[in-house]
Write a protein that binds this DNA or RNA. Structure first.
Length: 588
DNA sequence: GCTGATGCGTC
DNA sequence: GTCGGAC
DNA sequence: GTCCGACGACGCATCAGC
């Protein structure tokens, strides 16, 4: 009996890959989040902690090779070729089948048409092999990747390959993400340790995850009874904290603000890149992106300037802020697009304009020396920042107190006039909530104010089929839209629109577009290679869309394009030539 | 060595 | 980034 | 209210193929 039990435990430690893919399949089929959580919990409790850790890493795309995140760099067309070759089918028919019958899901295609294969390898072996993708680079690397995929396909059943292939193309579509997994881990904790740690709630778990964003390790601590270790997690200089983000502010949700109870400040909203800077006691600099990726190599000048700043202020700790290009000569901030050009990878600096620098605008302080400030009020954190002296490229955000909506409107007008993206409204009493989108930070962008003014009418030139879950509700994934150019009598494209619009609208559009679908575009319709849709239509139907701004474009044939386009409604009252001349909105 | 297509990561 | 759908 | 995954433009790096 004892032998049998030990044996059973041994067996469970050696989890099969098929067990993992069964879990994925069950999760995918279950619509209810509650049921998904039940499935996950049962799975986590059944398997050994080491196996669960790796399973969670798999589910959250967390693969490392020599401390580097693994990138698959797999060309989707290449993937189709591999599958076609392996299953001895014609490439074009495979491609078409994936698009039309499988909602763009290469994994689903393979689970039906793949090679039958009864083997089921150990999960940990597959996991290890996946990590090895991180070592592949350079010339002929696509060939090496191809071989690796072929060898993996040889090892797993066609059903199991479904999630493997989805991993490579970057989507699981099982309706489970980190938040759900964290909840499950918390529930396991509650059952096991709830009695002993009565004051530990879900919020505490979220806080831990916020400063220690590694679900695999968190579950390992819980499953191996290392609760004290887990609960003592603190933000650590050198380890990225999850960024706090803001909710959108609308005129009609201004009720979120309670001026009688709370104090608020506004700050200009800079249209650059979020940057979290860590300075160690030894003056070592770590720069992290919004998604906790180390980006020192992208902003070398910021790192140098920060070092000076730290030295000057005897500072070490963790800072949050925004990095944005600034033209010193002409005294203006660069557009987002231009700031992006200032990022440096391996590129040489030859084209660099002398008067342009990257500024780092600091707006929060999470750790100062040995002290964790995340649970202090924002007021206190800002006060500490203001005791520091600004540096050459290192600036402090300007906070202005506001006492009513009218003042917010005034400040908003001012910010727009000064070419900021808008403004941020921050609650001075709030702590820093790592990884949360909170109402203690609100973003108020230009578009939210002048929504009517910025509505744009465009004509539909083509459409592309929807993928994944969306394909269960509607045929269309996105519309290729453009404008009519009077001067040249051409239709030129300005955007693809796939966000916005409800199911009813999209299905109505499909009915209308189906009837005017043509096999090739008319002669006066100009579409670049980068935007060839699945189907072309005769220019006829006009829709109104909303966008944040108009920017210069290389790929859209209008020469300009819409940033963050979303669908609003059909305009049956307009004909194909009555589109908005959006060039006049170009922001520079 | 150049070009075009594509992935990755930012917003 | 925006957005709608499902819970 | 929260979570999830559809969908967008764009710049840079990378690599296949010429």
């Amino acid at each position: 009996m004892l032998y049998k039990k030990q044996n059973a435990h041994f067996f469970l430690f050696l989890m099969l890959f098929s067990e993992f893919s069964f879990l994925c399949e069950a999760l995918e089929k279950t619509p209810s989040r509650l049921s998904k959580k039940k499935l996950l919990r049962a799975f986590f409790l059944l398997h050994a902690p080491e196996a669960v850790t790796e399973a969670i890493h798999f589910l959250t795309f967390y693969f490392f090779h020599e401390q580097q995140a693994v990138l698959f760099q797999l060309d989707e067309i290449q993937m189709v070729k591999i599958i076609a070759e392996y299953t001895e089918k014609d490439i074009d028919s495979v491609r078409k089948s994936i698009k039309h019958e499988m909602s763009g899901d290469i994994g689903a295609y393979y689970s039906v048409h793949g090679k039958s294969n009864l083997q089921s390898p150990l999960f940990q072996d597959i996991f290890r092999e996946i990590c090895e993708f991180g070592a592949i680079e350079g010339e002929n690397s696509q060939e090496t990747r191809k071989k690796k995929i072929l060898s993996l396909l040889d090892k797993v059943s066609k059903e199991d390959a479904r999630y493997l292939l989805r991993l490579f193309v970057g989507t699981f579509r099982i309706g489970v993400s980190d938040k759900t997994i964290l909840e499950v881990i918390f529930e396991i904790f509650l059952v096991r340790y709830g009695e002993r740690y009565k004051d530990i709630d879900k919020k505490k778990f979220e806080q831990i995850y916020g400063v220690f964003p590694n679900l695999g390790k968190i579950v390992y601590f819980v499953l191996t009874n290392q609760i004290e270790k887990l609960l003592s997690v603190e933000p650590k200089i050198g380890m990225a904290v999850q960024s706090q983000t803001a909710e959108v502010f609308f005129k009609n949700n201004a009720l979120l603000l309670d001026f009688s109870k709370y104090s608020y400040v506004i700050q200009p909203k800079y249209d650059g890149f979020r940057l979290q800077a860590h300075v160690t006691k030894e003056q070592e600099i770590f720069l992290f992106s919004r998604n906790q990726i180390l980006v020192n190599h992208l902003f070398p000048t910021v790192a140098i300037a920060l070092k000076k700043y730290a030295l000057q202020n005897s500072f070490y700790g963790v800072i949050d802020g925004e990095v944005i290009g600034f033209d010193r000569l002409n005294n203006f901030y660069l557009t987002f697009q231009d700031t992006a050009k200032e990022k440096r990878e391996k590129k040489k600096k030859t084209d660099k304009k002398e008067s342009i620098e990257l500024q780092y605008i600091i707006f929060d302080l999470l750790v100062f020396k040995e002290v964790n400030l995340m649970n202090e009020t924002y007021q206190k954190r800002v006060q500490i920042i203001e005791t520091f002296q600004e540096g050459e490229q290192i600036k402090h955000v300007n906070s202005i107190p506001v006492f009513n909506i009218k003042e917010i409107e005034e400040q908003h007008n001012l910010c727009i006039k000064n070419k900021y993206e808008g403004l941020m409204i921050k609650d001075l009493a709030a702590p820093y909530e790592a990884g949360k989108r909170t109402r203690t930070w609100l973003k108020y962008k230009k578009i939210q104010k002048d929504s009517l003014e910025d509505t744009i009418d465009v004509v539909i030139l083509g459409y592309t089929l929807s993928k994944g879950m969306r394909s269960k509700r509607q045929m269309i994934g996105s519309l290729l839209v453009g404008v009519y150019d009077e001067a040249t009598q051409h239709y030129v494209t300005v955007a693809q629109v796939g966000s916005g619009g409800n199911q009813v609208l999209w299905n109505l559009l499909y009915e209308n577009l189906y009837a005017i679908t043509v096999s090739s575009p008319l002669e006066n319709v100009f579409i670049s290679k980068a935007h060839i849709p699945d189907y072309f239509v005769t220019p006829k139907i006009v829709v109104s869309v909303k966008a944040d701004l108009v920017s210069l474009s290389k790929d859209h044939t209008a020469g300009v394009s819409l940033r963050f386009p979303r669908l609003l409604t059909i305009r049956p009252d307009k004909n194909e030539k009555e589109s908005t001349d959006i060039r006049k909105f170009l922001s520079e």
